[in-house]
Design a protein around this nucleic acid. Sequence first.
DNA 1: GCCAACGTTGGC
DNA 2: GCCAACGTTGGC
Length: 178
Amino acid sequence: MAKWLVKSEVEDYSIDDLAADKRTLWTGVRNYLARNYLREMAPGDEVFYYHSNAQPPGIAGVAKVTKRAVPDPTQFDKLSDYYEKRATQENPVWSSPEIAFVKKFPRLISRAELLDDARFEGMMILQVGSRLSVTPVSDTHFNSVLKLASGAAVEIAKTPRRRNQVSRKSASRSAPNR
DNA sequence: GCCAACGTTGGC
DNA sequence: GCCAACGTTGGC
């Protein structure tokens, strides 16, 4: 089973939005390398959900792939920001798998925390200037993040003062576009 | 708000 | 097909 990371602007479609929707077509990705990764995604693959443009940015939780990629419907929609005039029904350009909410971490695993930890060296999301919104994640990196997330939960539970809690804006914005 | 790192565009 | 200019992303 492959592991992935998808990035979404927190103001646009956060993990809380995904939790509310339960599942969503991952539409609006307009980068060829990212698209190729989306096409590789298979049901059962686990996916980190990364919040960009957040304070702080980081991994908010886990999703999973529930359906293989189909043509991204937004490419055919003239009214969509993601309209693609080269695309036809016979020859679509962009692809969207379906992903489902699995869990939100008890606290955000911030980008800064990952950058500080040698175990996460080489994670694509941490590369300077990497703007890819879909990246593969190694099993080792995936498991280390999970360990960090569950360890943090215990730590917070034991601590009377919850210093590390991250404030969040409430969920629910517009449609699942990104 | 700044700016580095990209991807895309378009002139040639 | 090259590459400079430009726009966007997104961390800080």
